[in-house]
Design a protein around this nucleic acid. Structure first.
Lengths: 182, 182
DNA sequence: AGTATCATGTAAGAGGTTACATGATTTT
DNA sequence: AAAATCATGTAACCTCTTACATGATACT
């Protein structure tokens, strides 16, 4: 019974706080006002998640009383927080990540530069390209073998999935070349 | 305190069972062996979910004892189940669906033909195209205004999101034309 | 005889959703 | 004075994850 690991939301918070130490309220605004991440901006999700990070000493809070505002708690990463984030960012990419956690992979990628540096970012992209290339044939094969027996909307939905993986792979290659330039 | 509605997993199960009445075990295999849906195939998720559907009388089970196999419980939709599924399938598409529940929209789409017929499917696609077209400018604007202040990996991740919406829109238009042919 | 597959569940714990609660400060 | 926004939280409920439990049948 290993003690529970940091969740996806936890890492999203760590990534945001690494970029810029913020209050819970500011993080909520990021979730509600920017297109990045599909996390809930509800206080019932965010404040308990921040409290867990604090309990585990991954972030530390300091009270800030700006000019004429209600006081707010600014959270920033500890050394342990940076380590935990970095561990998540640089974890090996597996088939299961590509199949059912692509959103989390993109979240990781968006933090990679700041959290682990350009070498790790490039490594991530190459590894992602490899996994996509390995996975794509099996989806294409599934499509080929089953498309004819599916209702039209199901077939089109599956085709959309295949196209999504292909588009992602093209994007990865584009990102690699952008990265090499810099 | 309204009694809790059917979940995404619940609707995935209803859609699968409408297509073909099945046992919990068969459904698990669908989740583990086909690229469709990113649902867990764990018994701890599926059996309780099926039990909830049965409690609510959306599905009914009948014991099947095939030739020389352990007996299994085949579940099929009731009239109430077909109604509930149809209500979900034909619900209006909102901004929030496009922003953070695209996976659920595609799941809905894949069941639409069988669950609500071709007219509803076409209506769904047109409505999705409209929402995408309305949403895209705001993401593009966000990208234009914030890309320069973001780390490279974050910028590339956001660009990937924009490209994803654009690709999805092209796919919707393609799907509409496929549908009109039939 | 032993391992793999078929088949259905339960229990404990963690985390998210929805709704409620509270109060300070700023804008109209 | 009222409404909006800033700001932080809690409580009840529900669902999912992980792990365990059980037993039948098929394959080697």
């Amino acid at each position: 019974m290993r003690r529970s690991a940091t969740t996806s939301l936890g890492y999203a918070l760590l990534g945001i706080l690494l970029h810029k130490p913020s209050s819970g309220y500011e993080v909520r605004k990021i979730f509600s006002e920017t297109p990045m991440g599909s996390f809930s901006d509800s206080p019932g999700a965010i404040y308990p998640a921040l409290a867990r990070l604090e309990e585990r000493k991954l972030v530390r809070g300091s009270v800030d009383r700006g000019p004429g505002l209600r006081e707010r708690k600014i959270l920033r990463l500890t050394a342990a927080g940076r380590r935990d984030l970095r561990g998540w960012l640089t974890a090996p990419i597996e088939r299961a990540d590509v199949v059912s956690r692509m959103g989390e992979l993109m979240l990781r990628f968006s933090f990679l530069d700041e959290g682990a540096g350009p070498a790790a970012t490039l490594q991530f992209l190459q590894s992602l390209a490899a996994e996509l290339q390995a996975y794509l044939p099996s989806v294409r094969a599934y499509f080929k073998n089953h498309a004819h027996e599916m209702p039209m909307s199901a077939r089109l939905a599956l085709a959309s999935g295949v196209m999504g993986y292909e588009a992602r792979l093209r994007w990865v290659k584009h990102a690699v070349s952008e990265y090499r330039k810099a």
